[in-house]
Every structure is written in structure tokens, then in C-alpha cells.
């Protein structure tokens, strides 16, 4: 099943071992950024399916962006299949191996769109039993567009300074370990280029 969805490069034994080491070593907290992660023919069907979903404006002190409902309720077969794959025992085992985290097969999955001026301020994602936060990018942004995922170094369980950033690129799959240190932010989008993602969490005990 993995080979049906994932770029074969990412399932090679030596690469998987290497990624596992990288995940652990990456700073400011454990994360991976995997460009060209899904097979081209799979990801190309996801984008139009995503655009057929209804997006709702999410607006609070912490953020402004557009989000779908969780895909567990979607009637779109392409999104259902993608959700089924991400929550499959094979893929959950794969992420579990890379991250060293014991995960169960419940996941959350949403589509998000950040338009011009949308943002998400620093926070750590720690809610209930979230263990791994993940992002699949459908947009390729440049520095002039904003919209980077900023990862913060922390001191005394508070974010101190941006230590790393991920610039969204089409078909990049990124994920990080949710912890008391996992402070991150979506930088404001400052152009007309939309930042489109599928995002969510893997859960564990």
C-alpha cells in the first residue's frame, strides 16, 4: 500500500533509517520535511477534490484562515481514499517508525487555505493526545509571498526565537513531534498566492 501512494525513494530501507535519524536530530524540535513525497498521479487528483470542499472562515485572537470540516465526514471519494491511506496501519506504522512515537490509527484531517493577510500566531499544538502534526502542501510559495511555517526555539517552555522555517512547496509532506517545545507559527501571507494544505494530527496514548 505504501508504494501505491508514496514516492519509492521514501520507502527504501536505508533512506527510512536515515530519515529516522534526521527526525530525531532536527532542531529546534523533531521534524521532517519531505519534498515530492507522494506519487505525482495521486497528488494531482487531491487538489481538485480539495477545492470542491466547503471552506469556513476561522477567526480568533490567534488566527485567521479558511478550513474545511474534518474529512471523516466528506463525501468526496478521492479525499476519503487519502484519509484511509493516512490512517492505514502501514502508513501509521511508517510515521511511527520515523518519529519513534507510538501512534494509534485515529487521525484528524482538514483542508486549509490561507489567503492574503491570513496567519496563525505562535502556539504549541498540545491538545489531548496529539502526537504528530502533519502538513501536505499544495502551493509553492516564495519568500515574497510569506506563509512560511516558522519553528521556534524555546526557553522555559516559552518560544524564544525562530530557529527554522519551512517554505511550502507543492507535494512536500512535513511533520513534527507535538510537545511542550513545539512552538510554531504560520507567517502571514502577504501576496495573492494562496497557501493551500491538507493538515492534521496523528494521535497516540
Amino acid at each position: 500500500m505504501l508504494r501505491a501512494w508514496i514516492n519509492p525513494h521514501y520507502v527504501q530501507e536505508n533512506i527510512v533509517q536515515d530519515l529516522r535519524r534526521k527526525f530525531r536530530k532536527n532542531r529546534p524540535f523533531s521534524h521532517l520535511e519531505l519534498p515530492g513525497f507522494f506519487k505525482e498521479e495521486k497528488i494531482r487528483t487531491l487538489l481538485p477534490a480539495l477545492h470542491r470542499e466547503k471552506f469556513y472562515l476561522k477567526n480568533s485572537d490567534l488566527f485567521t484562515f479558511l478550513q474545511t470540516n474534518d474529512f471523516k465526514g466528506t463525501k468526496n471519494r478521492t479525499l476519503q481514499q487519502f484519509r484511509l491511506f493516512l490512517s492505514s496501519p502501514e502508513f501509521v506504522h511508517y510515521i511511527s517508525f520515523l518519529s519513534g512515537k507510538k501512534l494509534h490509527h485515529t487521525i484528524d484531517m482538514f483542508g486549509t487555505v490561507y489567503k492574503n493577510t491570513h496567519y496563525l500566531l505562535p502556539h504549541d499544538d498540545q491538545v489531548e493526545d496529539r502526537k504528530i502534526a502533519y502538513f501536505l502542501y499544495f502551493s509553492t510559495l516564495t519568500k515574497k509571498d510569506g506563509g512560511k511555517l516558522l519553528l521556534y526555539a524555546s526557553k522555559n517552555k516559552k518560544p524564544s526565537a525562530v530557529a527554522h522555517h519551512i517554505l511550502p512547496a507543492f507535494n512536500t509532506f512535513a511533520f513534527f513531534k507535538v510537545s511542550t517545545k513545539s512552538f510554531h507559527e504560520v507567517e502571514e501571507v502577504i501576496s495573492a498566492t494562496q497557501r493551500v494544505t491538507i493538515t492534521g494530527w496523528f494521535h497516540g496514548n
Binding site: D61, T64, T117, Y119, L121, G146, E188, I190
Partner: peptide, 9 residues
């Protein structure tokens, strides 16, 4: 109370 993020506009 909060004051909404000031954007690039």
C-alpha cells in the same frame, strides 16, 4: 480583551 493581529495592509 484582545487586539487583532495587524496585517501587512
Amino acid at each position: 480583551q484582545f487586539v487583532k493581529y495587524v496585517n501587512h495592509r
